[in-house]
Design a protein around this nucleic acid. Structure first.
Lengths: 149, 149
DNA sequence: GATTATTGGTCAGAGGATCGTACCAAATTC
DNA sequence: GAATTTGGTACGATCCTCTGACCAATAATC
């Protein structure tokens, strides 16, 4: 009745970490190589949550699972580097919407390309069906692991 | 042709990150609650790679994917907190083997229990077959994402 | 409408994690 | 025996993250 990992094998969390780490470093390398040399992984994790019409800082913080101070710290850097802009939120005078600039969109295009390339490699290695099962399983897992899905 | 991240599904790397993060925080909470209050996630990642007969610092660093300085920094803390010990390596006078103390083994037992509990929850949510497919897929992915598997 | 509580955000300070550079001593190679 | 590699340490810098305290605008309550 034991469901844990086989003896000596890493658990599912560590397996996920290894894959995530590989994807992140590949994407970051590609973005850096494309001339966006000042981006860090932490900035990217916040950046990736910004919606098309802008997103509030608190919401970014919740989704990226960091405090709002940390999110503000990272958004400051992204703003100074020209990837995002802060605009007043028309519906709330306290809030400001973080939006993506043209330079930000250019970086996103590179990141998307690198992601697709890595996913293609993974698909070649695992096969098409196993990959789509993997995606389905991880997506369903979000239902119980990601309160802000 | 919109590139806004929220449109479209997150990539496999991000999905892995979400699951990994959930596992890590659950395990860390359990270890902390069991009285091992001074352990951090980074320490745990190095700690988890120590073999039954002790492991050299450089090897820990490679496997955990950090520099040897970082590994040394973390092992220092683990040693001060009583989880590991450094013993001379009989086969090489330069090297020292990092080994796990009794307190370290006690912490491992708690961590293993928490891991198993989380994996059981995931299995309940996904079903037994999908979970074992997930484990198989992630394990195969290691072949191309983890040089030190 | 006035008071209270909540929410979005900032500021200041601290600690942890990670790296690059430089260096030493033991081991290995030539 | 000299040159190179390998295991490890020391120092300094940077980045990331959190706590705690605080402010101003909004929402809820009376």
């Amino acid at each position: 009745m034991s469901e844990g990992p086989p003896d000596g094998e890493p658990n599912l969390g560590l397996l996920c970490f290894i894959a995530y780490r590989a994807m992140e470093s590949r994407v970051l390398d590609a973005v850096t190589a494309a001339g966006f040399a000042d981006v860090t992984a932490a900035q990217g994790r916040v950046f990736a949550r910004i919606g098309p019409n802008g997103t509030r800082l608190t919401e970014l913080a919740e989704q990226a699972r960091v405090t709002k101070q940390t999110a503000a710290f990272l958004v400051d850097q992204l703003e100074r580097a020209g990837y995002v802009r802060r605009a007043p939120d028309p519906s709330d005078a306290r809030a400001r919407l973080v939006t993506i600039t043209e330079r930000g969109h250019a970086a996103i295009r590179v990141a998307r390309g690198a992601e697709a390339e890595v996913e293609a490699e993974w698909t070649r290695h695992l096969g098409r069906q196993a990959t789509s099962q993997l995606r389905r399983a991880l997506t369903r897992l979000r239902e119980i692991t990601d309160p802000y899905q």
